[in-house]
C-alpha cells in the first residue's frame, strides 16, 4: 500500500510535455561526405564554441538522388568528428531512413512539404511582432459616432446610446457604456470587456453577442467584466 502511494507521488513529478526546439539543419542535394567535410571545416573554424555539442539534423528534403546506404554512416562520422551531435534525419528515400534508424537516429517527418500542401492559401501576413498600440478615447462617444481600435480600447468618457465602440482586442471603460460595445471583432476569443457602469444596448465578444433585453438586471449599472467561455458570454461583477 505504501509503495503504491510512493509510486504515485513519484510518478506525478514526471510529466510528458510538448516542446519546440530550434535545431541546426544540414541541407544538401546529395549526401557527400567530402562536401560536408569542407563546409564544416570552414564554418567551425569561424565559431568553434558555437558548434560544440550542437544537435544537428541531416535534411535531404530537397534531394531527389538515391543514396548509397553506406553514405549515411560516413557522413555521420564526419559530422561527429567536428564535435556536432547528429540527432536525426529528414526526407530522403525509405532505405536512407531505414539506415538512419539502424544508426539510432530519429526520423523527422517532412512537415514542411505537408504544411505547404495543406495551406496553399496562407500567404496572409502574420501580424507583425510589434504590439498594436492601445487606443485611448477621452471625449464622449456620441450617438451615431463609432470608435474603432486595432488593439485594445480604453474609454475615459461615456459612450452614449446609439454610439458604437469596436476593438480587435479588449475594451476597458472607466465610465458608462450606453451604446453598443464589441470586443475581439476579428475573432479574438480571449478579448474581454471591462465596464464601470454597464448599460449597453449590445455586448459582443468575437461575434457572440447579447442585446440589452437579454442582459440580467443585476449587472446593469454595475462594474462588470465580460468574457467568453465557449460560446457563451460570461458576466462577472467586480
Amino acid at each position: 500500500m505504501t509503495t503504491t502511494k510512493a509510486f504515485v507521488a513519484e510518478s506525478s513529478k514526471v510529466e510528458l510535455k510538448a516542446g519546440a526546439f530550434t535545431l541546426l539543419k544540414l541541407c544538401m542535394p546529395e549526401l557527400d561526405a567530402d562536401a560536408i567535410d569542407s563546409l564544416l571545416c570552414e564554418r567551425i573554424a569561424k565559431a568553434p564554441e558555437f558548434f560544440r555539442n550542437t544537435p544537428i539534423v541531416i535534411d535531404l528534403t530537397q534531394s531527389d538522388v538515391k543514396m548509397e546506404e553506406s553514405d549515411l554512416a560516413v557522413a555521420v562520422g564526419a559530422i561527429r568528428g567536428y564535435g556536432l551531435i547528429p540527432v536525426g534525419v529528414r526526407g530522403g528515400s525509405k532505405a536512407f531512413q531505414e539506415q538512419a534508424k539502424l544508426l539510432e537516429l530519429a526520423v523527422f517527418s517532412d512537415t514542411r512539404r505537408a504544411a505547404r500542401k495543406a495551406s496553399p492559401k496562407k500567404p496572409r501576413t502574420t501580424p507583425s511582432s510589434m504590439p498594436v498600440a492601445t487606443k485611448v478615447v477621452d471625449t464622449p462617444v456620441r450617438s451615431g459616432q463609432r470608435v474603432y481600435a486595432q488593439g485594445d480600447l480604453v474609454l475615459l468618457a461615456p459612450v452614449s446610446s446609439g454610439a458604437e465602440v469596436v476593438a480587435n482586442g479588449s475594451i476597458h471603460a472607466y465610465t458608462a457604456i450606453r451604446g453598443r460595445v464589441l470586443a475581439g471583432v476579428r475573432g479574438d476569443e480571449q478579448a474581454a470587456i471591462f465596464c464601470k457602469d454597464l448599460r449597453a444596448e449590445l455586448v459582443s465578444i468575437a461575434g457572440r453577442y447579447k442585446v440589452s433585453e437579454d442582459l440580467e438586471a443585476r449587472f446593469m449599472g454595475r462594474l462588470v467584466r465580460v468574457t467568453l467561455l465557449g460560446d457563451a458570454l460570461v458576466f462577472n461583477k467586480l
Partner: peptide, 13 residues
C-alpha cells in the same frame, strides 16, 4: 436627449 447627443457629435465633427 438622444437626438441632442447625436447633434453634439455632429457639432464636433
Amino acid at each position: 436627449v438622444r437626438d441632442s447627443d447625436r447633434m453634439i457629435g455632429i457639432l464636433s465633427s
